[in-house]
């Protein structure tokens, strides 16, 4: 948690407001990669955590004014885990699997220079659980949870409006203490500049 506070302090430093460009741009970045859960899942002994890695996607819209500090919103899709019930179910027990995924909705602050960018986001994760169930009614439920993220990236300009890059994101769900690291390839598109 302290890391994000230090980063926010850094972002608010006068350097962040140095003038970089006379153009104000709105940039859309899409990313795809592979997510690795770095935290243990707190689950009962009779459950099997069968998936700690999965394909992830991200989508981010940033407003980039004339200085280093930019602001925007980020979303995406993060499959977190698939859990399978172990053993033969007893009479009063159901059986099956449950998949937990999240859609982040994060307000993001970023600072970039020479193609390198560091960003921090804070907001909510829309958690969704869905699964099969041996007694007819499948599992389907959702909830919101607070969380934050960090990312570091490098984007190579392909043209005045397109860039291709590499990005590493670190997502944290504060209540469940779930953490994921997601390396991904990104495509940046400057959809508007004025």
């Amino acid at each position: 948690m302290r890391r994000i506070i230090y980063f926010l302090i850094l972002l608010t430093s006068p350097a962040a407001f140095c003038q970089m460009d006379s153009l104000i741009r709105v940039q859309l970045t899409v990313g795809g990669g592979w997510g690795f859960r770095t935290s243990e899942l707190n689950i009962p002994d009779n459950q099997l955590d069968i998936s700690t890695r999965s394909p992830c996607a991200s989508l981010r819209a940033m407003w980039k004014p004339e200085h280093m500090l930019s602001i925007g919103i980020e979303s995406g899709y993060l499959p977190i885990t698939q859990v399978e019930a172990k053993g033969t179910p007893q009479v009063d027990e159901d059986d099956g699997t449950a998949n937990l995924s999240a859609i982040p909705i994060l307000a993001t602050l970023a600072m970039d220079q020479s193609g390198f960018e560091f960003a921090a986001g804070i907001g909510v994760y829309s958690l969704r659980v869905a699964g099969t169930s041996s007694k007819g009614k499948g599992i389907k439920n959702s909830a919101l949870e607070l969380g934050y993220s960090f990312s570091a990236s490098y984007t190579l300009e392909l043209s005045s409006i397109l860039g291709l890059g590499f990005n590493v994101k670190y997502y944290v769900f504060t209540d469940r203490e779930i953490a994921m690291i997601v390396p991904q390839i990104t495509l940046a598109w400057t959809m508007l500049s004025y």
Binding site: L41, N42, I43, P44, N46, Q47, I80, T81, V83, A85, P89, Q90, D92, E93, D94, D95, G96, A98, N99, L100, L127, R128, V129, S133, S134, K135, K137, I139, K140, N141, S142, A143, E145, R176, I178
Partner: peptide, 20 residues
């Protein structure tokens, strides 16, 4: 103790709660 179960308690069946 089940990080993957989210949302209202009343949206789960007793069998699901007992097993998961």
């Amino acid at each position: 103790k089940a990080d993957f179960l989210v949302g209202p308690f009343s949206d789960y069946t007793s069998g699901q709660l007992r097993k998961f």
